[in-house]
Simulated assay, not measured.
Amino acid sequence: MLVWERPEPQERPAPVPLSRERIVRAAIRLADADGLDAVSLRKVATELDVRPMRLYSYIDSKDELLDLMVDAAYAEIRPTGDTWREVLRSLAESTRHTVHEHEWFADLLGGRPQLGPHALACGESVVAALDGVGLDAVMPTVGAVNAYVIGAVRREIAGQRAERATGMDEKRWQAELGPYLRRQFATGRFPALSTVVRDAAHLDADETFRIGLECLLDGIEARISR
Protein backbone atom coordinates (compact mmCIF):
# COMPACT_ATOMS: atom_id res chain seq x y z
CA MET A 1 0.00 0.00 0.00
CA LEU A 2 1.35 3.42 -0.96
CA VAL A 3 2.31 5.76 1.86
CA TRP A 4 -0.50 8.12 0.85
CA GLU A 5 -3.10 5.47 1.70
CA ARG A 6 -1.36 3.77 4.61
CA PRO A 7 -2.67 5.00 7.97
CA GLU A 8 -0.24 6.34 10.54
CA PRO A 9 0.21 4.36 13.74
CA GLN A 10 -1.97 5.35 16.65
CA GLU A 11 -0.59 7.81 19.15
CA ARG A 12 1.19 6.17 22.03
CA PRO A 13 2.79 7.59 25.17
CA ALA A 14 6.32 8.63 24.38
CA PRO A 15 8.73 11.33 25.48
CA VAL A 16 8.77 12.78 21.95
CA PRO A 17 5.53 12.92 19.89
CA LEU A 18 5.93 11.78 16.31
CA SER A 19 4.00 11.95 13.04
CA ARG A 20 4.76 11.76 9.33
CA GLU A 21 4.46 15.53 9.12
CA ARG A 22 7.08 16.03 11.84
CA ILE A 23 9.38 13.52 10.14
CA VAL A 24 9.01 15.26 6.78
CA ARG A 25 9.55 18.73 8.23
CA ALA A 26 12.72 17.54 9.94
CA ALA A 27 13.98 16.02 6.69
CA ILE A 28 13.24 19.25 4.83
CA ARG A 29 15.17 21.26 7.43
CA LEU A 30 18.18 19.03 6.89
CA ALA A 31 17.89 19.20 3.09
CA ASP A 32 17.41 22.98 3.10
CA ALA A 33 20.57 23.37 5.17
CA ASP A 34 22.90 20.83 3.56
CA GLY A 35 21.22 19.20 0.54
CA LEU A 36 19.81 15.75 -0.04
CA ASP A 37 23.03 14.06 1.04
CA ALA A 38 22.23 15.26 4.56
CA VAL A 39 18.95 13.34 4.60
CA SER A 40 18.90 9.83 6.02
CA LEU A 41 16.55 8.10 8.41
CA ARG A 42 19.29 8.10 11.03
CA LYS A 43 19.93 11.83 10.70
CA VAL A 44 16.22 12.61 10.73
CA ALA A 45 15.82 10.53 13.87
CA THR A 46 18.68 12.44 15.49
CA GLU A 47 17.05 15.72 14.48
CA LEU A 48 13.83 14.60 16.17
CA ASP A 49 15.63 13.07 19.19
CA VAL A 50 14.10 9.62 18.65
CA ARG A 51 15.48 6.18 17.82
CA PRO A 52 15.77 5.47 14.07
CA MET A 53 13.66 2.32 14.32
CA ARG A 54 10.72 4.40 15.53
CA LEU A 55 10.56 6.12 12.14
CA TYR A 56 9.82 2.82 10.42
CA SER A 57 6.38 2.81 12.02
CA TYR A 58 5.60 5.82 9.80
CA ILE A 59 7.65 5.28 6.63
CA ASP A 60 9.17 2.18 5.04
CA SER A 61 12.23 3.64 3.34
CA LYS A 62 14.19 6.72 2.38
CA ASP A 63 12.46 6.66 -1.02
CA GLU A 64 9.11 7.10 0.74
CA LEU A 65 10.57 9.94 2.76
CA LEU A 66 11.73 11.66 -0.42
CA ASP A 67 8.27 11.23 -1.95
CA LEU A 68 6.75 12.85 1.12
CA MET A 69 9.24 15.72 0.97
CA VAL A 70 8.42 16.35 -2.69
CA ASP A 71 4.71 16.38 -1.96
CA ALA A 72 5.27 18.85 0.88
CA ALA A 73 7.06 21.10 -1.64
CA TYR A 74 4.11 20.78 -4.02
CA ALA A 75 1.92 22.22 -1.25
CA GLU A 76 3.80 25.50 -1.85
CA ILE A 77 3.01 25.51 -5.59
CA ARG A 78 -0.34 27.22 -6.01
CA PRO A 79 -1.23 27.97 -9.65
CA THR A 80 -3.79 30.76 -9.95
CA GLY A 81 -5.39 32.73 -12.77
CA ASP A 82 -8.53 33.23 -14.80
CA THR A 83 -7.21 31.85 -18.11
CA TRP A 84 -5.14 28.83 -19.08
CA ARG A 85 -2.21 31.12 -19.91
CA GLU A 86 -2.31 32.81 -16.51
CA VAL A 87 -2.49 29.45 -14.76
CA LEU A 88 0.43 27.99 -16.71
CA ARG A 89 2.48 31.13 -16.08
CA SER A 90 1.63 30.94 -12.40
CA LEU A 91 2.54 27.23 -12.31
CA ALA A 92 5.94 27.98 -13.82
CA GLU A 93 6.71 30.95 -11.58
CA SER A 94 5.48 29.24 -8.42
CA THR A 95 7.50 26.09 -9.16
CA ARG A 96 10.61 28.17 -9.75
CA HIS A 97 10.08 30.08 -6.51
CA THR A 98 9.66 26.82 -4.58
CA VAL A 99 12.87 25.41 -6.05
CA HIS A 100 14.79 28.48 -4.94
CA GLU A 101 13.29 28.10 -1.46
CA HIS A 102 14.23 24.40 -1.42
CA GLU A 103 17.24 23.85 -3.68
CA TRP A 104 17.08 20.06 -3.25
CA PHE A 105 13.66 20.08 -4.93
CA ALA A 106 15.37 20.68 -8.29
CA ASP A 107 17.10 17.29 -7.98
CA LEU A 108 13.80 15.45 -7.53
CA LEU A 109 11.71 17.16 -10.20
CA GLY A 110 11.07 15.42 -13.50
CA GLY A 111 11.49 11.85 -12.38
CA ARG A 112 8.68 9.42 -11.77
CA PRO A 113 5.13 10.86 -11.61
CA GLN A 114 4.29 12.49 -8.30
CA LEU A 115 1.08 11.04 -6.89
CA GLY A 116 0.87 12.64 -3.45
CA PRO A 117 -2.23 14.63 -2.50
CA HIS A 118 -0.61 18.05 -2.93
CA ALA A 119 0.89 17.13 -6.31
CA LEU A 120 -2.46 15.77 -7.49
CA ALA A 121 -4.25 18.93 -6.29
CA CYS A 122 -1.74 21.07 -8.19
CA GLY A 123 -2.23 18.96 -11.31
CA GLU A 124 -6.00 19.14 -10.99
CA SER A 125 -6.03 22.94 -10.88
CA VAL A 126 -3.77 23.17 -13.92
CA VAL A 127 -5.63 20.60 -16.02
CA ALA A 128 -8.98 22.16 -15.11
CA ALA A 129 -7.73 25.50 -16.45
CA LEU A 130 -6.91 23.85 -19.78
CA ASP A 131 -10.49 22.78 -20.39
CA GLY A 132 -11.32 23.69 -23.96
CA VAL A 133 -7.82 23.43 -25.44
CA GLY A 134 -8.50 19.90 -26.67
CA LEU A 135 -8.30 16.76 -24.59
CA ASP A 136 -5.33 15.29 -26.45
CA ALA A 137 -3.36 18.54 -26.08
CA VAL A 138 -3.69 18.87 -22.29
CA MET A 139 -0.88 16.62 -21.09
CA PRO A 140 1.63 17.60 -23.84
CA THR A 141 0.96 21.27 -23.00
CA VAL A 142 1.50 20.78 -19.27
CA GLY A 143 4.51 18.61 -20.03
CA ALA A 144 6.07 21.30 -22.21
CA VAL A 145 5.75 23.92 -19.46
CA ASN A 146 7.11 21.55 -16.82
CA ALA A 147 10.03 20.60 -19.05
CA TYR A 148 10.89 24.26 -19.59
CA VAL A 149 10.71 25.03 -15.86
CA ILE A 150 12.75 21.98 -14.83
CA GLY A 151 15.46 22.77 -17.36
CA ALA A 152 15.58 26.44 -16.41
CA VAL A 153 15.69 25.97 -12.67
CA ARG A 154 18.24 23.16 -12.84
CA ARG A 155 20.50 25.44 -14.90
CA GLU A 156 20.06 28.23 -12.35
CA ILE A 157 20.74 25.94 -9.39
CA ALA A 158 23.76 24.42 -11.13
CA GLY A 159 25.14 27.92 -11.62
CA GLN A 160 24.63 28.77 -7.96
CA ARG A 161 26.31 25.56 -6.85
CA ALA A 162 29.26 26.19 -9.16
CA GLU A 163 29.59 29.71 -7.81
CA ARG A 164 29.65 28.41 -4.23
CA ALA A 165 32.14 25.68 -5.09
CA THR A 166 34.56 27.94 -6.97
CA GLY A 167 33.93 31.27 -5.31
CA MET A 168 33.67 32.73 -8.82
CA ASP A 169 30.62 34.96 -9.33
CA GLU A 170 29.48 36.22 -12.73
CA LYS A 171 31.66 39.34 -12.68
CA ARG A 172 34.76 37.38 -11.76
CA TRP A 173 33.93 34.75 -14.38
CA GLN A 174 33.61 37.46 -17.04
CA ALA A 175 36.89 39.05 -15.93
CA GLU A 176 38.78 35.76 -16.14
CA LEU A 177 37.24 34.32 -19.30
CA GLY A 178 36.48 37.55 -21.17
CA PRO A 179 39.94 37.82 -22.78
CA TYR A 180 39.70 34.24 -24.07
CA LEU A 181 36.30 34.91 -25.65
CA ARG A 182 37.53 38.11 -27.26
CA ARG A 183 40.44 36.23 -28.81
CA GLN A 184 38.10 33.55 -30.16
CA PHE A 185 35.67 36.09 -31.57
CA ALA A 186 38.53 37.98 -33.20
CA THR A 187 39.20 34.96 -35.40
CA GLY A 188 35.97 35.66 -37.27
CA ARG A 189 34.80 32.05 -36.91
CA PHE A 190 31.89 32.88 -34.62
CA PRO A 191 30.18 35.98 -36.07
CA ALA A 192 26.68 35.19 -34.79
CA LEU A 193 27.83 34.49 -31.24
CA SER A 194 30.09 37.54 -31.30
CA THR A 195 27.21 39.80 -32.30
CA VAL A 196 24.89 38.46 -29.62
CA VAL A 197 27.48 38.68 -26.84
CA ARG A 198 28.53 42.18 -27.89
CA ASP A 199 25.21 43.79 -28.80
CA ALA A 200 22.32 41.91 -27.15
CA ALA A 201 20.94 42.92 -23.77
CA HIS A 202 22.48 40.99 -20.90
CA LEU A 203 19.45 39.74 -18.98
CA ASP A 204 19.39 38.54 -15.41
CA ALA A 205 17.96 35.15 -14.43
CA ASP A 206 14.48 36.52 -13.73
CA GLU A 207 14.22 38.23 -17.11
CA THR A 208 15.68 35.24 -18.95
CA PHE A 209 13.14 32.91 -17.33
CA ARG A 210 10.21 35.25 -18.01
CA ILE A 211 11.02 35.84 -21.68
CA GLY A 212 11.65 32.17 -22.35
CA LEU A 213 8.37 31.26 -20.69
CA GLU A 214 6.44 33.83 -22.72
CA CYS A 215 7.97 32.45 -25.93
CA LEU A 216 6.73 29.01 -24.96
CA LEU A 217 3.25 30.26 -24.04
CA ASP A 218 3.06 32.17 -27.33
CA GLY A 219 3.77 28.92 -29.18
CA ILE A 220 1.12 27.05 -27.18
CA GLU A 221 -1.41 29.79 -27.88
CA ALA A 222 -0.64 29.72 -31.61
CA ARG A 223 -1.16 25.96 -31.71
CA ILE A 224 -4.39 26.13 -29.71
CA SER A 225 -5.81 28.87 -31.93
CA ARG A 226 -5.27 26.84 -35.13
Rank of each mutant, 00 (worst) to 15 (best):
R210M: 00
Q10T: 10
I59N: 00
G159V: 01
W84Q: 15
D32G: 05
I220G: 04
D34M: 09
D218Y: 01
D206Q: 13
A31D: 12
R85P: 11
P9M: 06
C215S: 14
R29I: 00
L55P: 04
P9L: 04
T80V: 13
A121R: 06
T208D: 04
P191Q: 00
R29C: 02
D71E: 12
G167P: 02
K62H: 01
L36N: 08
V70S: 02
R78V: 15
V138L: 06
A75N: 10
R25W: 10
R164F: 09
M168W: 12
R51D: 13
D60A: 12
G212A: 00
R183W: 10
K171Q: 08
G212W: 00
V24G: 03
E76T: 15
Q10L: 11
G188S: 04
E21W: 06
L108R: 14
R210S: 05
G178I: 02
A26S: 15
F209C: 01
I220E: 05
E8M: 15
Y56S: 02
I157Y: 07
A33T: 04
A92Q: 00
D67V: 01
A222I: 08
R54K: 13
H97A: 14
A73Q: 08
A165Y: 06
D49E: 15
G178V: 03
L193S: 05
W104Q: 01
V153N: 02
T80N: 11
D218L: 01
V133Q: 07
L177S: 08
G116I: 09
L55M: 05
